[in-house]
Design a protein around this nucleic acid. Structure first.
Lengths: 122, 122
DNA sequence: CAGCATCCTGCGTGATACTG
DNA sequence: CAGTATCACGCAGGATGCTG
């Protein structure tokens, strides 16, 4: 675990790995507004994805666990009985928000826009 | 195929899709310095990825084609005989570079850094 | 040199059912 | 409510060999 990452993996590749998965980026984005419960995240991911099917718990759970291990989010488990778990961004995660913002911003102007026709090459 | 993207796909999700694949982001980054030939890109991708195996033509070809269809890069085929093909960023691709830069920048400070220990949650 | 054709494999993703 | 367990599948990604 404490393996020292001998050859520096290229940051871009590391990023790719870190946010691999369909929901990780969107989860981070969702969490930027504050802590959210498991179910809230789940519902939140359904909004805006063009009527995609439900996100299976297995997948969401995996994503959340991965994000936790990446150190981007933090899991807070309140006592028990009716289970209540909140996820929130860590400091690292918060520092990552602007990057996602940049992505989202660019995406809005270039992806959600007009039909993806081959535009001028230059 | 010409489906009109009825419900706006969330920009982040669209981004995810667009750069899905291990090399797309790195290819864009490589191309930011100017046009590159197929083989140059191939070699370029080998540098910095911690002694990964060779990139198979099939994969690289796929990535390049996808990037072309996304409108991020442009393929220029010089005549023939000894095949020579150059890839370069389109206007759209160029506008995307700063985003990759932000990613790379963040990655350098948070991923290539010290051992990924669970840092303070807040 | 810049690819394409074919085969193969792991894993990311989804469906379904069950539990503390 | 917040997950885990099991099964199943498609596809990204690698290996090899061939071509214009």
């Amino acid at each position: 675990m404490a393996k020292a990452f001998a050859a520096r993996t290229c940051p871009v590749a590391a990023f790719q790995k870190m946010i691999s998965g369909k929901y990780k980026l969107r989860i981070v984005w969702d969490l930027k507004d504050g802590p959210r419960r498991y179910g809230e995240i789940r519902s939140g991911l359904l909004r805006g994805t063009a009527g995609s099917a439900e996100i299976t718990p297995r997948v969401l759970s995996r994503e959340l666990k991965a994000l936790t291990q990446s150190g981007l989010i933090d899991r807070k488990d309140f006592g028990e009985v009716p289970p209540k778990v909140e996820y929130r961004l860590t400091r690292k995660g918060r520092s990552f928000v602007p990057v996602v913002a940049a992505i989202r911003d660019w995406g809005e102007r270039n992806l959600s826009g007009p039909v993806p026709l081959a535009d001028a090459a230059e």
